Computed example of a mutant assay.
Amino acid sequence: MIDKFWIDVSEDDLDDLQARLDRIRWPRELPAADDWSRGVPVRALRQVVRYWVDAYDWRRWEARLNAFPQFITTIEGQPVHFLQVHSPVPDALPLILTHGWPGSVAEFLDVIGPLTDPAAYGGDPADAFHVVAPSVPGHGFSVPLRDIGWNHLRIAHAWAALMDRLGYDRYVAQGGDTGSVVSPLLGQVAPEHVIGVHLNGGLAHPSTDPGYRPGDFDDLDRADQAKLAAADHVRATGTAYAELQGTKPQTLSFALSDSPVGQLAWILEKFHDWSDPRRPLTSARLDHILTDVCIYWFTNTSATSASLYSEPSTQLSAPTGVPTGVAVFPTDPAMRHILARTHHLTHWTEHSRGGHFAALEVPDLLVDDLRTFCRPLRAH
């Protein structure tokens, strides 16, 4: 059964959030901690919170989300929320989009229109998609998390069941972050239905990819040398969040579910560290980030979203034969010669702007890359 879904945060919940933001107990700040090297600076967070209180409007963003048809169904006992947006082009290609952490379906608000109705955005109707964008179990509105064991492979099986339930026999899987792991696995579990996989926003160090071989870092070109240096830095200074979420997600959740500023800081740090450092944090981007934060806050999913980190990760160990495209943005550590051992690469683009959250940061580039990748697939 598939039921319609409507986001409607109660006034009581909004009032409670406001009351909590009115009585923040700010921490003492460490000396010389104003450059993000020790985490989110107090001064920076004060500015964001002030914007949250004075300028951000949840109801406006709630309306933006509700402008798209939303539904909820149950797969393996788990509630699964999803957006399903039909293109005005009847024979458009079905596409399933998978977000990651600390993301949500709100990341896709700026790409759904151009993907489903390219003509309305100056594009070619032949590039149209029917879009399905589920909330990962335990994230956003796919709650409550009914049991443990929702790892990447199980999510891929659930997505295959969802697309079958929606009547899509032939489709493309796209994803970043968690989606960059789930989407190839979807191609593995449903190769007769997935005609292409498009990826962006992988975060793993290249040496942890199943395709890595000793010597893969010898004779790297300048671009891959820079990727390796950045990946080494992230591994040395920016992975504590994953260790904590992967080992003690319940303990962490007491702080995040009781303090909206704690939830904001936990998420804002990742948007700061993983986004294109050359692009300032504009009010438009901040609104989008705060919408993500609000979704985690109102759905109380700090623990259940973190639970995925404690599940055994599954990655492809050999190509499935499904054509795969990769859009590499400046903060991504992906190296073609390593990924080629585990993916059937037919498309590879290195972009000069953007970051980990491409759908939010550079929706134009992501949409164009996805269209280009899919054109040869449509004829088959």
Rank of each mutant, 00 (worst) to 15 (best):
A160D: 01
A230I: 04
S253N: 07
A158D: 07
A306E: 01
I338N: 02
L281V: 08
H288P: 00
H343W: 03
K270G: 03
T346D: 14
A358D: 04
F217T: 06
T349S: 15
P90Y: 06
T291N: 05
G149D: 09
A255R: 00
S302D: 07
V53C: 14
V111D: 06
L316G: 07
S10G: 08
V197Y: 01
T372K: 08
D258E: 14
N200L: 02
V105P: 13
T247R: 15
P277Y: 09
S135L: 02
I112E: 09
L185N: 01
A223D: 14
R278H: 14
L308A: 11
L162E: 02
L14Y: 01
T324V: 05
P191N: 06
T304N: 09
L115P: 12
T346M: 04
D209G: 02
I75D: 07
V40D: 03
Y168A: 03
Y241M: 08
Y171D: 10
D127W: 01
R59F: 00
T342Y: 02
F129L: 14
G39E: 09
D110N: 14
S180I: 03
D16Y: 01
K248T: 14
E350F: 02
L17H: 14
A340T: 13
R38F: 15
P31F: 10
P214D: 11
S87G: 11
T208I: 00
I267C: 00
A161V: 02
E243T: 13
